[in-house]
Amino acid sequence: MLTLILETATQFLFVLLAAPLFAGIFAKFKAMVESRKGPSIFQPYFDLLKLLKKETLVPQGSSILFRYVPYVAFGVYCLITLIIPVVIPVPIIFTASADFLGGAILFSFAAFLKMAAAMDSGSNLAAMGVSRLASFNFLGEGALITVFIAVSLITATDNPYTTNQYLVSNPSANITLVHVFATLAFFMIFLYETGKIPLESSGMQELGMIDESLNYEYSGRLLAVNKWSSYMKQYLLGSVLLNVFLFPWGLYSTYPYFLLDIPVMIGKWLLLIFIVMIIETTLAKVRLFKILDYLAVAFTFSILFLLLSEVMH
């Protein structure tokens, strides 16, 4: 029981505290590749601290939704943290509250809440971002859910921990057709959801922004919370990609070895950051309406190989 509590605490605190770190590492590495000096890898923490100290302004005419949704969304991401294998490869205390599909739906729920709150601000730019997001998400979220279903079909259960263990113990399952294409589709979704370069260039210029525009009217503490939940979302999706799709090995579950999971996850993340960085620095950003093409490809792959897995087993 003690082990379980420790594991839960480790997972939760690691995700909560280390999520901004990976964003910082990514920014630093990218700057190095582009021959810039770049910010410190702890810059996201400084940003958060600075924002927490600043005054919070709320637009006139916005309702309670605008003020409280950042906290609710943050809570939703915290809940997701507890139910999918992002650090510890065995079930922890709150795991039983939802399955794989539940996790995917919680992601969609958080996205919906943020969109609703951004609309509530009454800003034109935020509304534009919401309309973009809504027109892309109908494919993105669909693909996300389908990918999770496809993976759960491999092991005939929608428990992500079982899937992870199955993939660890059956190396050949990692190169089945269904798994390879589900991984590909999920990787495409990961790039989209975290706003990486072929789809969205980060920064506050309104031309290409999608996800960022939701934060347009936020300031101070609310903005800090929103940013923090974005970091967590990136970490969660990336860890699912690593632990369930790309590279399921190397995680420990017994006391005291599970503490080794932390360096292992950092190592895996460095691998993922390396891959994403190659993509970011070699590709150009696509035009906005081409994103729909991109997502359609991901969606098509996920659906097609979902059906194939059903037929072939």
Binding site: L139, L292, D293, L295, A296, V297, F299, T300, I303, L304
Partner: peptide
């Protein structure tokens, strides 16, 4: 393309 892919599916 998105429309074609969806109908295609």
């Amino acid at each position: 393309v998105p429309y074609l892919f969806l109908v295609d599916l």
